[in-house]
Design a binder for these strands. Sequence first.
DNA 1: GAGTTTGAAACT
DNA 2: CAGTTTCAAACTC
Length: 789
Amino acid sequence: MDVVSPELNSLLPDEIMDTEAIAMEEDLPAEHLAPPPPQSEPEPAQVPMETEVPEIVSLCPATTSMQMTSTNAQCSTSTGTQLLLASSGLMAVTTTTPAKTTSPASAQNLPKISSVTVPANHQLIINKVASSPAADGKPPGAAVLKPEGQKLLVAGLSKTGQPIMLALPHTWNKPATTQGTGDGKAQATQIKMVTAVGKPVIAVSSASQLMGSSTTLQAQQLKTLQITKKPPVSTAGPMITKLIITKALNSKALTSPASVSPVVTGRVLTQSTPVTPPRTISIGEAISTVTQNTSGNSKVAISPLKSPSKLTVVSVASQSPNSPQKSVTLPLNMALGQQILTVQQSATTSPAKAGTSQSTAQAAKPMQTVTVGGMGTSQFKTIIPLTTPPNVQQIQVPGSRFHYVRLVTATTGSGTAHTGASINTNPSIQPAKSVMMNAAVRMSVPIVSAQTVKQVVPKPLTSAAQVVTTSQTPQRLIMPATHLPQIQPNLTNLPPGTVLAPAHGSGNMGYAVLPAPYVTQIPQPAFVTLTSSSTFSTATPIQTQARLSLNGLSTSEATSRPRKPCNCTRSQCLKLYCDCFANGEFCNNCNCVNCFNNLDHESERLKAIKACLDRNPVAFKPKIGKGKQGESDRRHSKGCNCKKSGCLKNYCECYEAKIMCSSICKCMGCKNFEESPERKTLMHLADAAEVRVQQQTAAKTKLSSQISDVLTRTTPALTSGGGKLPYTFVTKEVAEVTCDCLLEQAEQAELANQPQAMAERLILEEFGRCLRRIISFAGKAKTDCPING
DNA sequence: GAGTTTGAAACT
DNA sequence: CAGTTTCAAACTC
């Protein structure tokens, strides 16, 4: 069984899947590995968005019995770190940096780890072992993170030598309920991550025990990937001169007992100075929920780009009825670009057949869309599941190293939400099932920079909670399509996350080129949900923007902010002046005039996108990248050019993004730096104002409640005085509470450093409000209390 | 709400 | 690449 099926290989970019090519490119600059060179600009010496804080990504197990047996997925991390999710829980991680790459010596022997590149200062060792120790060849200094029960650990080092880690929870390989083949001691497939720093040779060997006795067909093939790299001379940090990954292929890895010890988040084994503690990112069950019995017909979009910042795993496979699939968008904070990985899984094939059935399974797959983002820029990759398999055609674009899928079926067909041909929905493989309660929907293309999510706490993705809300403000539309030939010349220069989407009104041959954000703009009936089990009660025609719960973070928080409507009048919303356009969104509910940023102006829009990209290949890339020290040091990718605002007004893009100006800014008279007194004053005032508002709100709510309570309790005593004047309601209790209100107001004023006059005024105003409440309540009490009359 | 200011984007 | 113009948002009154 191969991690990547031949067919899948055919869908993947050459630079990823062609291991031989990689091998031949050893020690070659990364540009050689990059996708079409024209736009593949070398990564700057400083990669603003690069993850530099150690991260640990924990792939949390799903509580369900689902298992990821034969899914293949590749993920990209920062600077090209790629994660290959192999069947049976095997994962291969590749880390690529522009400058340094290593390649497997034998691509043929190791199709599963076909694209492993190791930057000089990145560490990446994936060790899949069974019960047997994997110490073989482990160099001194190399360490096994979690000998027992460690399902998967993927580690890499960012340029700064800080580790990036992925850890699969122990339940990852939890035996499927349907499978039962594995005996109790079936070797829990263990993957150990060993990072050796500064060692000339790192050998990670994994010996896996054969699974159940029946595993003859898929006898574990021990394949060794050896990656050799000459140690960088000048690299002070850890370097890997040679990486050997040996893994035993076990088709039944899934049968590993669930008793595997819980995955420890992982440890960074590095000799470099880990200034910052590793961050842990737990990837929710979305990944782990992959159905076990799927036969590995996964399709993976791999970004050839060097610096993907976001990893999105999209599982589009249909699931068996008993094993709902869940997918999650993984805005890993370890990459520059964004990637969306779609893992297609087929429930039709048994795990045992995984090795041989991939080709057939793939043919049976109803959906396959691989979209590759623009090159040289942040990369978004999206695989779009289609409900109508016969209508999906794979396309090889001449001159393009990517494969595309032609969508020949309008997505607007279904009238119900759950059956709608949504890009984001995962239709059941079996058309007969009108309702996919178990269907997992995966889709999310957050445009927000990945840096915004630093730590994600694993959170079970249970059904109901993940229904996508449709309340998102901006209505999102699918981008108009044009015929492929029209855009072909520019296919290699698409905006980040460009997606080929079904054409709008252009028959079966239309294509839409969508910047990644548009993926979330698919019109109804498309809608997104993380989990399938929930009923799709929202068959409304309302445009839906995915608000996926992302490990506790809703995508609305992570990826979509309520965007203000634009007011463009002259640009037709087809230039970057328009925020909608710049953000890769269609105008909706905007105040623009003569707007062309909509479905009705497909060609114009496409041309505009092309023009923008021609001017600036990274035009659609988020401007705010990550600085050296993580999120706190986010910085503008280009820097601002302010002259008059002192960078302390929202004219300044840095200030607007609430980040400091950096050395790359060309501003004049900048006051937006750490020690700036003006900035501090502004911040202080802003904070004080915010605190004050919050306090006032809380205090008023509380005191108002108290007053009402007091009045309520005292009213009966005043019943005899029905019809009395309001002052009769001012009992001792009421007076006391009122005084409390005034005191509270005084405290707040003092807290806010308000001048005395202002404080007095605020107190008086509060007193007035108290009186009004008393009067109001008095009147109400007289009228509402019959007993008083 | 109208007018002004500002700086990014677009253009030359 | 630098200077200028265009543009829409931010800001002021």
